[in-house]
Every structure is written in C-alpha cells, then in structure tokens.
Nucleic acid binder design. Structure first.
Lengths: 255, 255
DNA sequence: ACGATATTATCGACATATGATAACTATGTA
DNA sequence: TACATAGTTATCATATGTCGATAATATCGT
C-alpha cells in the first residue's frame, strides 16, 4: 500500500494485447471503486503517463517516450554500448542480431538491439521487452555473474508457484559455475526455434547493473568455426566495453 | 500537492545534462528533507523508475524503456505512422528526415523519426524530445488545428513570464488561419540553422491528439519545384494516414 | 437539443505521509 | 581486521491527503 503502487498497478494493466482501458474496466480489474480510479487516472494524465483516447478509453502517455529518450541519451551502458553493438554486428559479417541486455527486477531486459540491414529473422528480444530469467544465453551469463545470495533470492521468486526441488537449484549453480569458467554461454532454440544465442558477460562496475552482450544467429548457418569466431568477437568487444564503463578516471559527471 | 507529483518532481530532476543524482542533491534541489526523499526514491526504485548507480547516485530506470516499448507497439499513431513516415522519406528521394509529432503538455513532441540512410544532418527533433510550441513548421500546423480556446490557454501559459501584447496573439491567430487555408506550413531556420521544415496536419480523431507529419531538408537543396513536390507528397501521405486512423471502415464515407 | 455516459466535486472517517532523530549498513582505508 | 564515514532505513507523534458512496456537472453521440 505504498503511495506509488497505487499508480503503477493502474499502469501495469496496459499491455501489448490490452492497450486501451476505460476507467470502469480498470475499476473492475483492480477491484477498486470507480471514483478512486478516476482520481488516480486524472493524476496520471496530468503528468503525461496516461492520455485520453477514443471512446473514453485511456492509453499510455507520451511521458514514457520522453523519459525513454533520456535513458537512451544518458545511460552509460546504452551510450557506450550502442556503437559497440553495431560494430559487433558489422564485424560478424553474417546475418545476425546483436543484443545488449541487463537484469531488471525478476526479468532480463534488452536495452539495445542492432540488426544487420537485411535481417531475415526477428528474435523475441527487442529493446524494452522483459524476457524470462531462466532461458537463453543472454540470461545465462547474467545469472552467472550474480552473487550467490542474489541468485538464490531470484530463484526462489521465480519458482514460487512451480514445485521445484532443491536439487535443481544446485544443478543451476553448477551450470552457472561452468559458464563463468568458460566466459560465455550458448543456447539453441531455448527462446526462438531455429535460433541460437551466444552471450558474454558485461562487467559494468559503475552502472551497477549486471549485463550481457549477445548475438543471435540462425542455427542452420552456425558451424563450429563460426561459433568460435563469434565467441572471440563477443569477448573482445565486451572487454572493450567493460573498460569504457569502468571507474571513469577523474571526469565524474554528477555529484 | 497530489500524491503522484511527489514522485514526478523527483523524476523531473533528471535531464540530459544532469543524469545522476544523490539523495542529498535531490533533497537540496527540492527543498525537501532527506528522510522524505529517501522514502520517495526507495519506492521509485522498487517500481523500476529509478535505479541505483555508482557513488550512491541514482539514474532513470528501465521501467521507462519497458513502457516506451509498449507505446511503440500499441499507439495507433506510431503503429500506422512509422511505415508511412519511412515511405515518405523514401519517396522524397533526397537527403531528408521525416518526423511525426504531436502536442504534449505545453510542448510539441516528436514521437517517430525516419532519416534517409546516409543523412548528412540531424534536426533537433528526435523521438521523445519536447520542442518549443511556437517555433517551426511542425508546431505551426499543430497549433493551427487547435480550437481557439485551447490555443488561447496555451498562448497564455507560453507567454506568462515574457511581456507580450495582445496584438501579437491576434497576429498569431491570423497567421494560423492562413496555414489552415494553405493546408501546410514551411519555416526556414527557426529551429536549426540551414534547415527547412515542411509540415502538414494530421487529423487523428480516434487518437485525440493533434499531430503533424513533416519533412526536414537542407535549405540549400530546396528550390521552388522541390518544395512543391514535397508538399504534395506530405499532403497525400497525411491523407492516407488520417484515413487509417479514422473511427471505422463502415462503408458510409460522407459524414 | 436531448438522453446517456463520462467525469468531477463533496465530505466524514480513516490511513498514510511528514520530518527530526536515532539506529543500522555498506564501503573504503590504515 | 577494525575503524571511520557516508549512505540508508527505522521510529513515532502529528498533520494532511486518501477513501469511497453519492450527488452534481460536463461531455459525447445522435
């Protein structure tokens, strides 16, 4: 019952499949009296997080577009990551999509993507889309970086509903240890059929967030040699990016 | 002092030039006790609107990226506008940038942009950036669409600090009436030196928001014939887009 | 202009925010 | 390792804003 959650519960109603809500529908869905929802919605509209649309419905507002631009311009990971990501895709010299992802609540979120001009496929990952924590190479290398305590907590949240055994957690721990040793992760078809993800960890000490750099390619064009080349490309790029992001000498910006 | 504003005043501190804040700095800037700011920040972090960064600073969070994606996917104007915008830029067959903009509070916000592959310049307009209401063709055609009452209110807000005369408002009214008759607006160098904006109104009855479709080109390549061609291109594209956005495809056309 | 629907205003009871201070927790350093 | 410092959370009495049913308006569709 903290104050902000009153607003976010309304905002969280909006989704890809349900993008316009009337106040009455919100009132029903949230089981909150209409008069209260009206008040809440009014405030959200005033601040630009919602806006009135056709037929007395409301949609997500332009404030999100505005703040998203600020994150694009100011987030060090995006700022420095985007050009490197594009360079990775270029140097790969094959049809592929590059991704920059990070931990976000109990999901992994892609915060930048770069496709070759004539990309023949679209991975599920795309900027701003929360993805499952326990699937895909991109997530794997992020999990592998987490301190044991944090990992345990996430695992517990993740498997709350499902009945899972402790043994499975130990298996995960071992698997992640192997990933950590190898320095990269590869998964095949875990997220999209026919696509392979190759990911390496990003150490962004300043940014705090644990992140990863990855490439998605079609399984059918990936042979052993190419796989090796891409892993090396990713590792060296991640190295470079991690250095860019590290204790930025004297030139601190805020304070 | 409604509840949401407590949070937005914090969020509004973040800008292009000041992207990382400590709690103490916020407390100073807002003249609110640190203990209160800590509480507010904690809630914003919990919901993903802020996130901790290096040196006890906070930055805008990934929730904005998430919600921005939803607007990209679901806003009818962006959904239908983006492909048409790209088509406009393609058909222009010159070096140019296309823009889709709309009214947002007391500003005009670009919600989609499309540049030719090898664009040699960058207009100030870019997705998510609020722009002045009284400058540029893009804004002009939006103002020209507004009901008199609304225009008056915006004008008054805009000119609150500055001492302006009533006569100037009448001039604006007349100018906008001319724009309305012409069906388009052209401005030269009002926003960016050496660039020209050509804009036409978008009638998006469902979306509610008044919007515009525009092209930015370099002044030096724009002659009378080209100008004419681009205006026609914009008008026909806007026509198409407006129809896409209109209420229903019931066979009856005359209203 | 009309009826229907959407939105805002009202108000007592109640819950939550406020802000000074104290307690606690990282984080870095000798 | 222990200490110091900055950063963060907890505490608590009080004031202020919220809640939700209902009534009063405003707006929409025709």
């Amino acid at each position: 019952m903290p104050a902000l959650s009153r607003f976010t519960t309304v905002l969280r109603l909006f989704s890809e499949t349900r993008d316009a809500w009337t106040v009455l529908a919100m009132s029903d869905a949230l089981e909150v009296p209409a008069s209260s929802v009206y008040r809440t919605v009014r405030e959200l509209v005033a601040e630009g997080f919602l806006e009135p649309s056709a037929n007395a419905t409301y949609r997500l507002g332009a404030a999100f577009v505005e703040f998203d631009r600020l994150t694009r311009l100011t987030d060090p990971l995006m700022q420095m990551g985007k050009p490197i990501l594009q360079e990775v895709v270029r140097q790969a010299q094959i049809v592929c999509v590059g991704l920059l992802a990070r931990l976000y609540h109990e999901t992994v979120m892609c915060i930048a993507d770069a496709a070759v001009p004539g990309a023949t496929f679209h991975p599920s990952y795309e900027r701003g889309r929360p993805m499952p924590l326990m699937l895909g190479a991109t997530s794997r290398v992020i999990l592998a970086q987490l301190p044991a305590r944090r990992l345990k907590r996430l695992w517990e949240k993740e498997t709350l509903a499902r009945r899972t055994r402790h043994k499975q957690f130990e298996e995960l721990r071992h698997h992640l240890a192997a990933v950590r040793r190898a320095g990269y992760a590869i998964t095949r078809g875990e997220i999209d059929k026919g696509l392979v993800g190759i990911a390496v960890p990003l150490v962004a000490s300043t940014s705090g967030a644990t992140a990863s750099l990855s490439l998605v390619v079609e399984a059918k064009i990936l042979d052993r040699a190419l796989e090796h080349r891409l892993v090396l490309l990713l590792i060296s790029s991640a190295q470079m990016l991690s250095e860019d992001l590290s204790p930025a000498k004297k030139l601190a910006s805020g304070r």
